[in-house]
């Protein structure tokens, strides 16, 4: 649940979602749900030479189970907050 809460704070920011099939899509985070399904707006494919047919789509729904990484905007990373939260999660209580 840590990441669900965390990603919700990032709504409206630019993120890059890397899929397990190596496709990387950049866009504005529109919403995220508890399964980490991700909706992006104004998306574009990072490696356009490799995936020319997906040049740009306006909105895009990505299934949580196919996401490998989410690259966050540096200014959206609060290291102290994450340290704190991950420690609590690791304690399991």
């Amino acid at each position: 649940m840590l990441f669900f809460s965390y990603f919700k704070d990032l709504v409206g920011r630019e993120v890059t979602v890397e899929l397990k099939n190596d496709l990387a899509i950049r866009g504005t985070l529109h919403s995220v749900d508890q399964y980490l399904n991700i909706k992006l707006e104004n998306t574009r494919v990072v490696d356009q030479d490799k995936y020319p047919h997906m040049l740009s789509v306006r909105n895009c729904f990505i299934r949580g189970s196919v996401v490998r990484y989410v690259q966050l905007p540096p200014e959206g990373v609060d290291v102290e907050l994450l340290h704190d939260a991950t420690r609590r999660e690791a304690r399991g209580g």
Binding site: L19, N21, L23, I25, T43, P52, H53, M54, L55, S56, V57, R58, N59, C60, F61, I62, R63, V66
Partner: peptide, 27 residues
């Protein structure tokens, strides 16, 4: 269905469409 998106860019596909990616057994 790994992802779905509205595609309106004529360079991506000549007509507006709902684009989907499908996860396969081959994957």
């Amino acid at each position: 269905i790994s992802l779905h998106a509205v595609s309106r860019d004529p360079e991506a596909y000549p007509t507006p469409c709902l684009y989907t990616q499908i996860e396969t057994e081959a994957d």
